[in-house]
Design a protein around this nucleic acid. Structure first.
Lengths: 229, 229
DNA sequence: GTATAGATCGATACACTGTATAGCCACGAT
DNA sequence: ATCGTGGCTATACAGTGTATCGATCTATAC
């Protein structure tokens, strides 16, 4: 018995040769579009038109895939400038830009040691640009700026998500979580906080980031010039 | 037909009255012992001798449980000191201590808006202790210290885990990831980084944290005293 | 005391996850 | 032609958060 009209095998989106890079790009695309939760091995595989197990020919575990996408984004982060201050500031702002373009990075950054080639290249570029400053200052200074950036972008993204979740229009911090904070502040148990919310400055995310960064750089500068330039 | 020896129903650890607090305590215990991945609703429920669905009488979702355990730990974080500098430093170090006792907190901190009562109380205590300083400085200063602490403790815990994973004995950063970094550095593509690893200071986690924090506080201080005391 | 309404609770089920295992199938060597 | 062998994939497993629905227990109305 001959089946004259054999059903076509399910057309795979693209049978192009697979590669680690294509895998990573697909994962980043998914994460950019729908967040980190959307990056499951099954979905990445489906986006590439292959079975999930196929991926294990290129990665050993999902953690490795995450490390790879982190490192890929680090390729966009390069320092610029002449003196140490410009260098540190530029790398901080480049990191922030990268996180704004890839919000999921806020969930991963700082969470595990980043030792991929691009990350190391960024560190190398920073260190190379910092010659002339005492290593005893450079090492903790770079670490401090890194720490600050990690925490700052995490908070920034967390707030952005909260805003977005509370109906795109309401921009007020107090209204973000609805009546809860209203009631909480109405109890009078947090007078100092209430005063801050009422009388304090309403800084944009840009300003908050920049001001804190300058605080840190000022402190580092004081140490450098004190240490004999 | 009578079953004379009916098997005992599985003895439940404690049929005590359930409560949100007991639920949170069980979750923290699990997380402290086996990390955040061990906190599944099923395991928490089992630890309490209850079916998983029972928990939904006390929490609406797992995210809510996570918010609750974060806020519970924040009860341990209170500022101390007289001047603003002592206050900020103490709250930073208290946060770090809390994270060291609850490593899983490093995975969560800064990742979502923390608005629980204990967190707010911490913020209130900080703000209350900062009266006398211009609000235009206090707000970004507190934000900056917070950001720094979040990033610093994340890195610290990430490194601790990497050390632990690479066989408790090897303490050297370079040896942590085995031959990979050896080879990478041997390529000569990262001369500045190699120099740092070779000639740079080997700071303890305590020192790194403290030095960075003092950088930041110095920068804030400069701003305060410039702004007219 | 009985019946009914309502609340409470738990078993089951569903869709999904990362990954171990084992079978299949094509290809190269003997 | 036969026999590994190695890469690919279908299946399977143990686990996840949570929706649903039925059972059970309580409290109130008659």
């Amino acid at each position: 018995m001959v089946v004259w009209e054999r059903p076509e095998p399910p057309e795979r989106p693209v049978p192009a040769p697979l590669s680690r890079e294509r895998l990573v790009r697909a994962a980043i695309k998914l994460a950019d579009a729908d967040g980190l939760d959307a990056v499951s091995l099954r979905k990445v595989a489906a986006a590439l038109g292959v079975g999930p197990m196929r991926l294990y020919g290129y990665i050993a575990t999902k953690e490795e895939l995450l490390d790879l996408i982190i490192d890929t984004v680090y390729a966009e982060i390069r320092p610029a400038g002449d003196d140490w201050r410009q260098v540190l500031r530029s790398v901080a702002e480049a990191t922030r830009r990268a996180v704004q373009q890839h919000e999921w990075l806020a969930d991963l950054i700082g969470g595990r040691p980043h030792l991929g080639p691009n990350t190391l290249a960024t560190g190398e570029a920073v260190q190379a640009a910092m010659t002339g400053v005492d290593l005893d200052v450079v090492v903790p200074a770079v670490a401090a700026v890194n720490a600050y950036v990690v925490g700052a972008v995490r908070r920034e993204i967390a707030e952005r998500r909260a805003e977005r979740a509370s109906g795109m229009d309401i921009k007020q911090f107090q209204a973000a979580h609805g009546p809860y904070l209203q009631r909480t502040f109405a109890t009078g148990r947090f007078p100092a906080l209430s005063r801050v919310v009422r009388d304090g400055p309403h800084l944009s995310a840009d300003e908050t980031f920049r001001i804190g960064l300058e605080f840190l750089l000022d402190g580092i500068q004081a140490r450098i010039s004190q240490c004999g330039s």
